[in-house]
Design a protein around this nucleic acid. Structure first.
Length: 563
DNA sequence: GAAGGGTTGTAGCT
DNA sequence: AGCTACAACCCTTC
């Protein structure tokens, strides 16, 4: 906290001088009114901002603001939803809000929902209700960093106390960066050394609140209930088309409980050994969407895992253990917070500069599950329908799009994931795309996931493919990962003609992956030579060079074929 | 400068 | 299920 405040102070002064005269506050006779502003942290348990807001206040106003920029339907988007979020995640959020409202009501309170630009709405509320204490969970994302400076400046000018605790992550990213001399650690091991045990690891978290201060008079503020999808302007889509995962804290705790009951499973958890093709019963906890919205406290989750581990003889360790997964989350939050332009290649000091293709055709084929590789396409269908896939499945499609086969820019794939995943998290999503594209953290670009054999290893019968790509459901298992190799008689029998009912592969994996390796090798060399300061012009030149090489190669092949 | 390590590659062998 | 070769990257640490 201290570190981040000192970071933001220059902006503070700038913003301060541009503020209009101090707002006038009505001289309402009141004790002390507090406002808890929910953004993430959509929970009651282990919610320090909520607890602090309620303590000693006469009235407590729990507020959530629906931001039209995030929630308004966008008919031009490539899938149902808003500009930024697919329908699955919007629905997950609404369900989480309904659950939060009902939990608040059990504690004698309720959720006050507004629509509009968050800071404008908030300023109106602060004035109208004569708020003395404003509480909200600290957020490290650039969007909230900018918004929160605005809000904090307004509050301090108006003499309102602001309480903004770090409770979304296990550690405060700013502390870890400070410990490391101002730069974030770039490896998991160095992160672990710096982080150590969380300060609260063995002290009880506040998971039981018996009651909250009542909601005061809301005055002239226009408050609505949690809207339905239809009220937000979305069409009614069949349940079958939507994610099987329900949002909300209650659901999160139920799911957590279910996972923790199987002590052996928790103790033996090894992430890389999970089966990405398991969909009836996923190989992981599927708690990520709940962590994303803060329906589940990562600290509470941490303590639950710790409890299980204490009571077994042997358990796995980070990075592969279940606890290790939570630490990965904090790792990415820390690097993301301490790296300017973390979500792009340009101006990102930890990101290799690579001359990615600009090929919207290949991107669209990948996005719309038309690559012709059933393993890849099935995963993309699961993404569209469920908004969730196993971690290793994400690896396969991310590798395929970028360094493995299509050589499309990781930012394009990132955008698709960010929109469609119900657990899409700014720091983690960008971190993993940097990882998978060999742009940062991970550099062994020879290790390419095969779009054919990787899935086969887990699911030789192709049940996962048959489920998400029913057009291939009668394809014999000998051909289901490479249906273009099936004889026409087999294709006929399976009622799936390749090139007509299901596409032919967009590339040859053998050729494309070799080409990708070569391009990465050259790009790395250039990055080394220019010591990280690769310009747009350098990238253009190498892109052109690759294209020339490619056409020369195909020319020589043509010549060879002729002779 | 060299050595060691890096959450999760593939193919082929036992 | 576990070894090996394959080809070989980067970053951290010494």
């Amino acid at each position: 906290m201290r570190f981040s405040l000192s970071l933001s102070s220059p902006h503070c002064f700038l913003r301060f001088s541009t503020l209009s005269p101090l707002p006038h506050y009505p001289s309402m006779a009141s004790g002390s009114n507090s406002l808890i502003w929910f953004r993430k942290g959509l929970r009651i348990h282990d919610n320090p901002a909520l607890e602090y807001a309620s303590n000693g206040s006469t009235y407590l106003y729990p507020v959530f603001v629906i931001d039209p920029h995030y929630m308004e339907p966008d008919p031009n988007a490539f899938s149902p939803g808003s500009t930024r979020a697919g329908l699955n995640r919007i629905r997950f959020l609404l369900e989480s809000l309904v659950d939060l409202d009902s939990s608040l009501q059990k504690l004698g309170s309720r959720l006050l929902v507004f629509k509009g630009e968050p800071s404008e709405v908030l300023f109106r509320c602060l004035k109208e209700w004569d708020i003395k204490k404003l509480c909200f969970e600290y957020d490290t994302e650039p969007y909230y960093q900018a918004l929160d400076i605005k809000v904090k400046n307004y509050a301090s000018a108006a003499g309102i106390e602001v309480f903004s605790p770090v409770s979304h992550t296990l550690f405060n990213p700013a502390d870890i960066i400070q410990k490391n001399g101002g730069r974030p650690p770039l490896t998991y091991q160095s992160f672990m050394k710096l982080a150590g045990q969380p300060s609260w690891a063995s002290s009880p978290l506040s998971t039981n609140i018996s009651g909250l201060s009542p909601v005061g008079n809301v005055g002239n503020c226009e408050i609505s209930k949690v809207p339905t999808l239809q009220e937000l302007g979305y069409e009614d889509i069949g349940q079958d088309e939507l994610t099987p995962f329900r949002g909300g804290e209650s659901e999160a705790l139920k799911r957590l409980d279910g996972a923790m009951k199987d002590k052996e499973w928790v103790a033996k958890f090894e992430k890389p050994k999970g089966d990405p093709s398991a969909f009836q019963k996923p190989a992981t906890t599927v708690l990520s969407p709940y962590l994303k919205f803060g329906c589940l406290s990562s600290r509470y989750f941490y303590q639950c895992i710790q409890d299980v581990q204490k009571n077994v003889k042997k358990h796995t360790l980070p990075p592969v253990s279940l606890l290790g997964q939570l630490l990965w989350r904090d790792f990415f939050y820390t690097v993301a917070f301490g790296t300017p332009n973390f979500d792009q290649m340009k101006g990102n000091r930890i990101c290799k500069q690579i001359p990615w293709n600009v090929d919207d055709g290949l991107l669209a084929a990948w996005r719309d599950a038309r690559t012709g590789f059933p393993w890849i396409d099935a995963i993309m269908v699961q993404l569209q329908k469920w908004g969730w896939m196993h971690h290793l499945a994400r690896h396969c499609v991310a590798c395929f799009l970028t360094r493995g086969d299509l050589f499309v820019h990781w930012e394009k794939g990132r955008d698709v994931f960010e929109r469609l995943l119900i657990d899409s998290d700014w720091a983690i999503n960008n971190g993993n795309w940097l990882w998978l594209s060999c742009s940062s953290f991970f550099y062994q670009y020879n290790r390419i996931y095969s779009p054919i054999s990787f899935g086969k290893k887990y699911d030789p019968n192709g049940d996962y493919i048959r489920h998400f790509l029913p057009i291939l459901k009668d394809m014999p298992k000998e051909y289901i990962y490479e249906p273009w190799t099936a004889p026409l008689s087999i294709q006929n029998k399976a009622k799936c003609i390749i090139g007509k009912d299901y596409p032919k592969p967009v590339i040859s994996h053998d050729i494309a992956s070799k080409e990708c390796k070569r391009m990465l090798a050259e790009a790395y060399e250039l990055n080394k030579k220019l010591n990280g300061s690769v310009s747009e012009e350098d990238l253009k030149i190498s892109r052109r060079k690759f294209e020339e090489d490619q056409s020369q190669e195909s020319n020589s092949k043509r010549l060879k074929n002729k002779s």
